[in-house]
Amino acid sequence: MIENVPFALLLGIKVLVVLGLMLGVSLVLIYAELKWSAHIQSRVGPWYVGGRWGWAHPLAEAVKFLQKEDLVPEEADDKVFRLAPYVMLAGTVATFVVIPIGPEWVARNLDVGIFYLLAISSLSTLGVLMAGWGSGNKYSLIGGVRAGAQLIAYELPLVLALVAVAIQAGTLSLTGIVEAQATPLFTIGGVDIALPYVLSGQIIGFVIFVIASLAELNRTPFDLPLAESELTMGYVTEYSGLRFTMFFLGEYAGMVSMAAIVSTVYLGGYWMPGLSDSALDIAGPFILLAKIFFVLFLFIWFRWTWPRIREDQLQGLAWKWLIPLTLFNIIATATLKVVL
């Protein structure tokens, strides 16, 4: 049936779905963070906007930002400064292209899905670097440089953790990885048991991937590029209005995309035991969303509980602990794969 739809129309629909999904989930996430953080801090959180529980609060904030003046500092590198938020947002949006939300629901099922993911998700750091450099502000510059150093240190554990998954699944395609997780591992009393990778051998990889993705996202305890108490607001210090909103949205969209990757690769993606393929076609997106929000809850929980660590400690954690551990994980996975 899909073959009959004209390519351009299909593309348009896909773009709308991906954008809508990303923005919609991001707005929900902003609301969720406001509410969850409020409850962690024994506050109420958004209450008035929209009538009940302040559900329209993120919308109101977006509208507020739209009204603000779009300032460009005199010292700024004009073009770089203006372009940076788009680069940041584009890198984040592009990751959704390969995330499967159902057996048939994927914008583009690339055979090298993981490669694509890792390559494209680093693009947003380029946006951060551009913002840091282009702002013409020393705090922004330090923030941008910190983000660059952080990217180099934490891209490695991220990649190496996924290498182990690729070895175990035997494919680089994300749909393939989900299907591999849905494949029964063994049978107990006539019931086929399939386990997501977090439960079947990749627990170390899961933990490291979550830690590294926190660093990639500049979330507490790795929010050094922003570091409000040190660098005022790091690379977004000079931004206002719509461009600030892009960064804000980009941050949350980045969280959603990282959570989507974690859910897909480690938690079984759209798949849930006991559901047939046709049922997954309908329920898949919701299952994935539930898993995404579980991971997001972890992100938010960490942020509102922990302080920020220091640059040298951050680098030490990556190079001394995470990278050796991922290497061990790869060797262990490969050994098991050969032995079993």
Binding site: S37, I40, Q41, S42, R43, T220, P221, D223, A227, E228, S229, W304, T305, W306, P307, R308
Partner: peptide, 16 residues
């Protein structure tokens, strides 16, 4: 002080 180290929640708990 924790806020300066990046942790926001102790502020609310102690102020309460």
């Amino acid at each position: 002080y924790p806020l300066e180290l990046g942790a926001a929640t102790p502020l609310m708990w102690a102020f309460r």
